[in-house]
Design a protein around this nucleic acid. Structure first.
Length: 225
DNA sequence: AGCCATGCACCG
DNA sequence: CGGTGCATGGCT
């Protein structure tokens, strides 16, 4: 494969989808994000991968042993997801990315739905339903019954919901705010373009209102070419 | 080719 | 009229 060189430009510029009718929230400024590097299977800008272990998010490279977190104090982080407006808005249905659904939730090979007991970090217990919808020739996995938790935590689109496994194996739900500088792309509405910029040797992600502007900035920063 | 966000039709 | 389940479309 001869890809190689200018991968950056293609990967760097990606369009954010517009949410038809909504409060016109313009991004006139510049949202910067440091440290882009998650890249594994099907990763979406909206799906954040948890690499932080129990303590603060120190960017350490862990050699893949599962129990890395070891004693942390709270539980082993399974994955987290930034809530979309669909996740947070209505009936409390949270779409679970397939890879995580298959990895961390009970298999639905035979059942169409499965009850998943869960506890939040405050000790409140919830009864969630893990199920799937048929979509095209595949499946879409959804966690239902999240509304109480979303309400209790005042979760809105752009907030991050975390799924951990407690010591007893129970599913633990938590949430956190995106750290400053973390992409809140889901909150941005309207047709925007993003570019990865090289600013003084540090990588940033910036959003623009036109593809041209994004490309121009990318070129200027030295990553476009 | 596939995923997922979201709209919406249908059914209670 | 509200919610479930689905289909479509945008994006990777």
């Amino acid at each position: 494969m001869a890809t190689g060189s200018s991968d950056a430009s293609d990967d760097a510029v990606r369009r954010e989808s517009a949410d038809a009718a909504g409060p016109s929230q313009r991004c006139d400024g510049l949202a910067a994000q440091r440290g882009l590097k998650d890249r594994e299977e099907g990763d979406k800008p909206k799906t954040l991968r948890g690499k932080a272990k129990g303590a603060d998010g120190k960017a350490g490279s862990s050699p893949k042993g599962k129990g890395g977190s070891g004693g942390g104090g709270g539980g082993e982080l399974l994955f987290e997801k930034m809530l979309t407006s669909s996740d947070a808005g209505g009936p409390g249905r949270v779409v679970i990315p397939k890879v995580h659904a298959l990895a961390h939730f009970p298999s639905l090979e035979k059942e169409r739905e499965r009850e998943v007991p869960a506890v939040d970090t405050a000790g409140q217990r919830y009864r969630l339903r893990f199920r799937f919808w048929v979509n095209n020739q595949s499946r879409m996995y959804v966690l239902e019954g999240c509304q109480p938790d979303e309400a209790a935590r005042r979760l809105k689109a752009g907030d991050i919901i975390t799924f951990s496994r407690g010591a007893n194996g129970a599913l633990v739900i938590g949430s956190r705010q995106p750290r400053p500088g973390e992409p809140k792309a889901v909150l941005v509405q309207g047709p925007l373009w993003a570019a990865v910029l090289n600013v003084a040797g540090e990588l940033y992600q910036a959003f623009f209102e036109s593809r041209e502007a994004a490309l121009e900035a990318a070129n200027a920063s030295g990553l476009g070419a």
